[in-house]
Amino acid sequence: MIFVQTLVYGLALGGVIAVSAVGLTLAYGVTRFINFAFGEFLTLGAFFCLLLAQAGLGLAWAGLAAAVAVGAVGVLVERAFYDPLMSRGLLPLLVTSVGVAFVVQNLIRIFAGSNPVRFPLPLMRPIEVGGLFIPREQLIILGVALVTMLAVHLLLRFTMLGKKMRAVADDPMLARVAGISSRRVLDATWFVSAMIGALGGILLAITQITVAPQMGWHFLLVVFAAVLLGGIGSPYGAMIGGLLIGLAMELGATYVAANYSYAFAFIMLILVLILRPRGLMGGSG
């Protein structure tokens, strides 16, 4: 019984991680660096959503509007900070993204204070299935996560933008030669990446019931774990990686040691990296 309950929680947490991981890995695909400021998209999404909800907007609409706004922030950040460094190798980009993370996170802290704020979720009665109580929140999270992943799948498979994104991710030079404007694809990718990140942040706020300025930064490592587990740059890998990490964290917390649930994510990550240095879907060698 506890096992099934844990499974539900694990899947919901996995959904949150998977959504966030897809966002991170999409941007990696076209820019080739791991964005350490990605966690701040999550935090911003949750705070924008909170603000809009407090202003009287319905939660669903507030969430969508927040996601779009964060998408715009993503494009701004990319243009202002990352784009000028694209030709300078990996380290400047990594360090800059860490700098952006500190700036955004602490600006939020200046405005919102350091203490967690309750996320305005309406009270919902859990669903009872055969003696099992399943909170509606978890189902909503799982639903939103699945819809988001389906949307990403449709975007990548069936739209021109998605095809261009995959082309640029595959070979940026070749894509440019083929007449794909990498500038526009880059903008669009960062918009989508940040937007999905914001959605992930809102889902995270629902699971944690509170929002705090450090929530995205703390969650970042779990998202990294999922991304690397699935093979960096592979959206489908990120989805599977996210679900696996979520399950591992909940199962580990329930059956091994509750205060090590984050550590389980990394231990899993490290094990996978040792056995398969490019992740599950990253091909061999």
């Binding site: 900070f81 460094l85 380290l91 400047p92 360090v95 800059t96 860490v98 700098g99 952006v100 993370a101 500190f102 700036v103 996170q105 602490n106 600006l107 802290r109 200046i110």
Partner: peptide, 15 residues
């Protein structure tokens, strides 16, 4: 917070 904002900005600017 301001201290960390400053450190973040410095990281960006130095690089």
């Amino acid at each position: 917070s301001l201290r960390f904002v400053l450190i973040g900005l410095l990281l960006i600017a130095v690089v």
